[in-house]
Amino acid sequence: MNNKQLIVTSNPHIKDSTSVEDIMWTVVFALVPAVLAATYFFGLRALLVIAVSIIGAVITEYIFLKIRKKEIVIDDGSAVLTGLLLALTLPPSIPLWTAFLGSVVAIGLGKQVFGGLGYNPFNPALVGRAFLTASYPVLMTTWVLDGTSTATPLSYISNGELIEIWDLFIGNIGGSLGETSALALLLGAAYLIYKGYINWRIPTGMISSVIVISFLAGANPITHIFAGGLIIGAFYMATDMVTSPVTKKARWVFGIGAGLLVAIIRLWGGYPEGVMYSILLMNTTVPLLDRYLKPKTLGVAE
């Protein structure tokens, strides 16, 4: 018996096989229905925008890792996911160079300047979108459906017009690429919750508080759920692991807080939509929430 070969490391000696890459690629996979819905409603151009955004994100990630002399981990799925999520928040008619620029900013300013995966305080895709919203407000609010200009459901609501809930639910309505089909987004989200890759407390808190506030304010809660970016924001952006809290109580507060901000911005603010800013604002509270909303250790009195 040759003893020299034995590995002597500490416990545990076995390990769960799920990796960071598995999680990232599974989230990408869960967004496939949304991509298909976007292609169905907005045509092949939707695919083009998505592809350009992903390519921009991956190239930026590569260049930054190269400059920082880090291991090239562009295959971990995280840059692809950021590019994809950003694309899904863009209008279908957006020029391709704008989508590209947005994803460069998302990865560069949103992620790599902080030290790369795991170190960014803000959701990178939303940083990219915030940049584009501030820089190109007209391009970011031009909505097209079936070749004609249209308004988004939230602006219809602002104007007091009625829309069909069913169209809202399946996504047959103007809006960003991936925001429109709640059905497609929820399919993927259900799978991610089943896998345990997104935490249900954040979307539950966020959507519930939007329902409560819009109901109290006399607005129709159903349209507020399915119109705009609430579903994609609540299930795919607010739940971003890196930029959301780790404790259960903090997740509730984070979700409810984000929902309150959405409702306040939509109902009383200057923008028809508030999901992006509400999540970015709540991102800043994460260290504080985790610090003060620790779980009670077993055996410690309340």
């Binding site: 590995i7 000696h13 960071v20 795991g118 404790t247």
Partner: peptide
């Protein structure tokens, strides 16, 4: 054999959600 070739923490909280003592 489990290998612990540490990569950056993505704050997935699987450790928090699994710890039987409710630690972080």
């Amino acid at each position: 054999v489990a290998k612990f070739d540490a990569k950056p923490c993505i704050r997935c909280a699987r450790c928090v959600d699994s710890c039987p003592m409710y630690l972080l």
